[in-house]
Write a protein that binds this DNA or RNA. Structure first.
Length: 226
DNA sequence: ACCCAGGAATTGT
DNA sequence: ACAATTCATGGG
């Protein structure tokens, strides 16, 4: 962590985020759970995402007892690939139900090698992930960062977009800032511009900077907490 | 009732 | 190629 901070806390804004939330770590999540979770996460608030994931765990996972409390495991590829789209919709997934179903089948049938991704570099692994239904550049970056040990991944969501345009706007042209700040959702080209900036500016641990900036910025906006 | 959310896929130009 | 439009639903 000392090395990561030395390499990525490159300006006052980033240093403030590190200072305030020092101790924050990036999870090394199970790749399968991470994959499905971020397919569900598109165009949803974090509170709503938690709700959706709890729903499918209760509905398709296994009940376990831990510390005297009941929990439900995250459903396996086998179980989730057998769930109907109607069942997934009932869990509140909306239009994401189809993507979860199709991707689950590819994993269960071994059409896609999720375990083999860790052996790949960032770029080829990202290219592979994007072939999955419901996985675009942003979801792929989240999966790579949180479950594939790719710490140079720099996911760009609406928060990171605002942070980069607001605090690092001097790295972009005036025309680009006006165009992208107007875009409701980022175009693929705009995503690539901000993503490339993050990886070049913050370096091989760009994902750590992303996470500290993301969390710091969100705490400054009380209405989106929890 | 209104607004937006850790975007991606599809359709139109 | 690149720019609009569509897609379901819950929480603030």
């Amino acid at each position: 962590m000392e090395e990561i901070r030395e390499l990525t806390a490159k300006d006052e804004y980033a240093r403030t985020a590190y200072k305030q939330f020092w101790g924050t770590r990036i999870i090394r999540q199970d790749p399968w759970e991470c994959l499905i979770s971020y397919i569900c996460a598109t165009y949803k608030s974090i509170a709503a995402i938690k709700h959706m994931l709890n729903n499918i765990s209760k509905k398709f996972g296994d009940k376990t007892i831990f510390g005297g409390s009941e929990y439900y495991t995250f459903p396996s590829p086998k179980r989730l690939s057998k769930a109907t789209i109607a069942e997934l919709r009932t869990s509140g997934l909306g239009y994401r139900a189809k993507y979860v179903s199709e991707t689950s089948k590819k994993i269960q049938e071994r059409t896609f090698d999720l375990q083999g991704l860790k052996a790949l570099q960032y770029e080829p692994a990202k290219k592979e992930l994007i072939t999955l239904p419901g996985v675009g550049p942003k979801v792929a970056d989240c999966i790579l960062l949180f479950s594939q040990d790719k710490f140079e991944a720099f996911p760009v969501d609406v928060w990171i977009k605002r942070i980069v345009l607001g605090h690092y706007g001097n790295h972009f042209s005036k025309a680009f800032i006006e165009k992208t700040s107007g875009e409701g959702s980022l175009s693929p080209k705009s995503y690539e511009m901000i993503n490339a900036f993050g990886r070049e500016y913050f370096g091989k641990y760009a994902g750590y900077a992303q996470e500290y900036l993301f969390h710091y910025e969100r705490t400054l906006q009380p209405k989106s907490q929890k």
